[in-house]
Design a protein around this nucleic acid. Structure first.
Lengths: 353, 353
DNA sequence: TTGAAAGCGCTAACAG
DNA sequence: CTGTTAGCGCTTTCAA
């Protein structure tokens, strides 16, 4: 451990001269190709070990015009919804020998666009965009510039990108039906960012179902906010100042629901007695909230895993499997039914990973 | 939006021939260097736009032997402790024009080693390893192969890597002192992975302080487990089967504490009346638990931000600032003091982002 | 079985 | 102001 001399990287040529062969021979050994004598192969192996040679994948990629990398764009890595997607995607990528560039774009469309361009400049072999906020037009133009692309939580034409989605409209429907069955009649919604497509789908599902069941959901009880705890808290505060007669609150996601629960507690509003609260996503901590949160389970790890699989398929020109759709599942907890014994559904669920 | 013809990338040469100049001239325009006439510059600009040219950073890096990328290794991205570090690191990297390779190594030392090698093969300009589990010897050998390195939650010789840490020994001390002040005398510990250095520091701090204050902390009440909700739940179960007289439980991190809280609730043990529970990290959801969790606040965003700053410094050969140390801060919540009105500390804290 | 030459896309260092 | 040459580290192609 002497003072650090920035380790000048050993090259193929270094190994070659050390072993007294040509670079091609070393290349063949490194890549496990045959056409190299046992003698030579051994000598080269020794030289590689002695010098600590590691192939420069960047240079290799320049020649092959593929980089062995993929880009993964998420809107907010601190929202517990995303790390699971990232893990799923990364597991598959790592297993296939790819390395993942992560871009956390902070709900900012400009940064999203910049990130997509930066990834292009890095010549990633493909990109996955999770919950992108760009308009269809801009997004698709940017994705088309990439060799392969997949969008998560959004749809795109098959020529532009694969799509791995959740039927959010159904999720919203399940939530509203549940509230209706519990006798709730006066709904309010903490909606997420205006540019969220998933959010829009959910709103549509809620509105449809509310109309069918004859539930109140007037526009002034629909508040947009940032999809964070603080955003949820602020949105809940605004809502409660405007309307007093709400008996059920649908939230864009669990993180906003967390903020809402806090705000309700601060104001002495009882959940679920006064207001029932439903989240969305089923983040791992949703069942630890006070009260535990009724929500829609989304298979996030699978979302990431399949997104990466579809991407790898598309990178290799296999475009068959173009769109994967998951169904969300209603998880009933205390925030809608109170602190009775948990039902069988919740017990089953609580044993999952 | 016709059928996708994998977009053959436009090169400098393409632009050059289009504009009727040499590649050098285009290169100069692209890089904003002067020595190009206004006329020419304009023609080149037009060609660039018409062709949608974007420079190939990989090729540029091959020449310059720097890639404009850094590697970021985390043990488990689904632990809410890490996304905040990632966000801090990514913000700084993005601002400096670097792109981040994320490697999620799943608490697996072999995968950790593989990832470090894979990053080397990709010729990253530097690496940050968060809470690495490798032995000092292996870790340092691998880090030394990189041009620059930083470790988070761990120490390394200045020649090998910069270090951004938290005084975990102090955190452990604060926790034990707090429990002592509350009259707790019979401690137990849910320790994390055996290979966690942070974990070892915390254990030492607990043991020291417990001894000084005359508190019980016998070895059979120290249970190692995976640093996950499930790990915490399992470890708590094992503990409670063995010992019945515990009145305070110190957990490796908040995620394990979450599992412990669940297990205690299942068994009808009251927190904090029967057993007081303390976590570690202050993940964003710790205050949403039932009961809300007393824990040690660690400035995770800052950890990531400074880690990346130190890394960039080292990449540019500025080695001055070698070690940054943060102090954890005790956050008292219901899991140790019950559901009384929150103290001023907690109120202040609850306003932070 | 082995090697020489050429080139992936870009830029530093020189010409002109 | 603009262009030519050479080469980053590797691999494909062809020759020996």
């Amino acid at each position: 451990l002497t003072t650090r001399q920035t380790p000048d990287k050993v090259t193929l040529a270094d190994v070659a001269s050390r072993a007294g062969v040509s670079t091609m021979t070393v290349s063949r050994v490194v890549n496990g190709l045959d056409g190299v004598g046992e003698q030579t192969r051994r000598r080269v192996r020794e030289a590689i070990d002695e010098l600590g040679y590691r192939p420069n994948i960047v240079a290799r990629g320049l020649k092959a015009s593929r980089s062995g990398t993929v880009g993964l764009l998420v809107t907010d890595i601190t929202n517990p919804y995303f790390p699971e997607i990232v893990r799923g995607a990364e597991d598959v990528a790592f297993g296939a020998g790819y390395t993942v560039f992560l871009n956390n774009v902070l709900e900012d469309v400009e940064r999203e666009a910049q990130a997509l361009l930066a990834l292009e400049d890095r010549r990633v072999d493909g990109v996955i965009a999770c919950s992108p906020r760009l308009t269809d037009e801009r997004l698709q133009a940017l994705l088309l510039r990439h060799g392969a692309a997949v969008v998560v939580n959004r749809w795109a034409p098959a020529e532009v990108a694969g799509s791995v989605r959740v039927e959010h409209r159904l999720g919203a429907r399940l939530a509203v039906q549940h509230l209706h069955a519990l006798g709730r009649r006066r709904l309010a919604v903490l909606a997420g960012p205006e540019h969220s497509h998933a959010g829009r789908e959910r709103l549509e599902g809620m509105a449809e179902t509310a109309a069918e069941l004859g539930l109140e959901l007037p526009p002034q009880r629909l508040i947009h906010g940032q999809p964070t705890v603080e955003g949820g808290q602020a949105a809940a505060a605004r809502l409660l100042e405007a309307s007093t007669s709400v008996d059920a609150l649908l939230c864009f996601n669990d993180v906003m629901a967390a903020g809402a629960l806090q705000e309700l507690r601060c104001r002495g509003v009882s959940v679920p007695d006064d207001i029932a609260v439903v989240g969305y996503d089923d983040i791992p901590f949703a069942r630890m909230f006070t009260p535990s949160l009724t929500t829609l389970h989304v298979p996030t790890y699978e979302l990431g895993m399949h997104a990466m699989r579809v991407l790898l398929d598309r990178m290799e020109g296999r475009h068959q499997q173009v769109s994967i759709v998951f169904q969300p599942e209603l998880i009933v907890r205390e925030s809608t039914v109170g602190a009775g014994a948990p039902g069988p559904r919740e017990l089953a669920r609580s044993n999952r990973q």
